[in-house]
Nucleic acid binder design. Structure first.
Lengths: 190, 190, 190, 190
DNA sequence: GATGAATGAGTGTTCATTCAT
DNA sequence: AATGAATGAACACTCATTCAT
């Protein structure tokens, strides 16, 4: 009979996320992960042969979750682009750590084909996300709701960057999303 | 007298900056710096006894340059807060890498008193910058130009985050500043 | 299960002792130890995270062995203090390298709590040894066998220092202990 | 005109002694010495080309001073060997740090001929000192004052080791010498 | 004479990774 | 499937020593 599995994949991903947020990609190491999971260091190697593989897998899973939520928006009944964009912002705030992807992806060593493959897939998903936002902005423009002197690309980035603004402690998430969205659309002017 | 100096401090700072931007703080190491300067690794230790000291010195110099520019705005004839804020944005775009400070400062080991001292000084300077922006926003509010349902603190952060938006390749810097400032003030609405 | 152990703890302690006696604490380093044990340098770090920890562990083990022997004297049937002191001298000569402790302890860096803890324990054991000798001297004094114009503290030190006298090559250990003890008690006078 | 000499030889020797006593031979280095003398590190190299040369010179000077004092005893009017030995003990206590020589000499690298030469000279002086003590003990033996079942060599060492006994704080030097000498001659017996 | 500057050699330490069980 | 043990490679840091001025 096989030994009971000690390493729960979900737990592994969760610990990875916590550590990525707490100490960052560079300082993340298998020793730490193993300690938190109460397993031997080398056990992690049974599943991922290095940090790159583990982290790219984590990012892929994360992006998949985000896109699932975005798909729900797409499949929703709403046809108003601004409403959709507001919903996207909500999702991004929920998955606030997606910004990790933007930071980590460029520094990852893509030598290993397994890693490379995952990063390609990840880029596709990211593209899909951007395309959705992009499309909404285009529709909004056509409806004459938005200014047209700024490229859609910039608008998309603008929205994406918003999630990096540090939320005030005493404000609740949806309310915060409202503030950000209002800033995005109306700016600071009275 | 001594041997001719091989290590130019300015060059050292420049290489540090380049490497920080290219590979980040964690991957930065003295070997790399020394190689780029065509000197021995231990030579760098003659000037800075570790990475922390070198990098905190770099950040301090950088922030000093930024504040010099901000002081010029302060001493300028303009009393219009929005004009001043627009000028600050220009400065921040020129010293676009100030965002490194925000990233690196929290992870630096402050054990060494020399490092700690520099970080304290750095925090003071940063505070000064924020205060200037803060003040301009307050004046603008009092003049009734800006919306008041968003805290000044958030506005300040908003402006500060703007510099992270990646500039399009084919656009010139001042023009880009105009775009960003317009986004900041007017938002995306038509 | 894991790979077969290559590093025998006892062997490690023995090599440490040999090197401490041969080249001293300052010159002792992990490279040397590793070479003698035919293992990689970093392997030693699996067991002790630095020289301080290794050496303090060594000293603790050594002192424990000494005290075990002293305990046997204490539990022995003899009640004559001089006989007991003579036996202590034998033990000290057997563990002649205890003087290493006196030399090394003061220069050890106690920053690490692990090291500090061991040194505290070590000090306790040393105290116990000194107390035993001290007590024997006191009893001897009360029996009127010893001069009383010299403090017990000095007597204790005197005995302890004796082990540093270099033994002549051609003399056997117990005989040498007799000579030293006689010197201690009777002095050089006829 | 030549520059004013900044490095005073005597001061150099004094600093060397202080550091040797404070931190020991192994930790002694030119950087520390230079700092204490307020000169550049490389300046010391004008006088001594390495630590070995400096320290062997120091020990030689020290031993010379000791022997000067011993010569005075020899030239003195006293013919009583015990009185002479008591005087030697006084000298040894004055130059209490001669024990440094015993510790350092064996670990010094004798590769350099300059160092070797000094160490040879040093050994001669040490021999002279031992011979003097030796002779006094022999005379004393012939006078029937001392026991003869212990080799003179051992007696000599015994006296020499005495200086390592830590002096109590509140006792004055000559008095301490008396205690030690009495221990040496009469032992601990009543 | 004096020294600031540069450097190599050696040690300290961490960690990803392999391997045998 | 799991892991304890071993290790090399890479980086951190110190210091004796050389050299040009």
């Amino acid at each position: 009979m096989a030994r009971k599995k000690k390493v729960d994949q979900q737990e592994l991903m969760q610990v990875t996320e916590e550590l990525l947020l707490k100490i960052g990609y560079e300082r993340l190491n298998f020793k730490l992960i193993a300690t938190q999971l109460f397993v031997g260091r080398s056990t992690i190697y049974e599943y991922y042969s290095n940090k790159e593989e583990l982290v790219s897998e984590y990012m892929l899973k994360l992006m998949n979750q985000v896109l699932e939520r975005v798909d729900q928006i797409e499949e929703g009944e709403s046809v108003d682009p601004l409403t959709n964009l507001r919903k996207v912002l909500s999702v991004l705030l929920d998955y606030n750590h997606v910004h990790l992807i933007t930071e980590i992806t460029p520094v990852l060593d893509r030598t290993s084909p397994i890693v490379d493959q995952k990063l390609v897939k990840l880029a596709e998903l990211e593209q899909k996300l951007f395309t959705f936002i992009h499309t909404q902005f285009q529709i909004a423009e056509q409806l004459g709701v938005l200014r047209q002197d700024v490229q859609v690309q910039i608008k998309t980035n603008f929205l994406y960057q918003l999630i990096k603004l540090k939320k005030e402690e005493n404000i609740e998430r949806e309310e915060w999303a409202d503030v950000l969205f209002s800033l995005l659309i109306n700016g600071l002017k009275k």
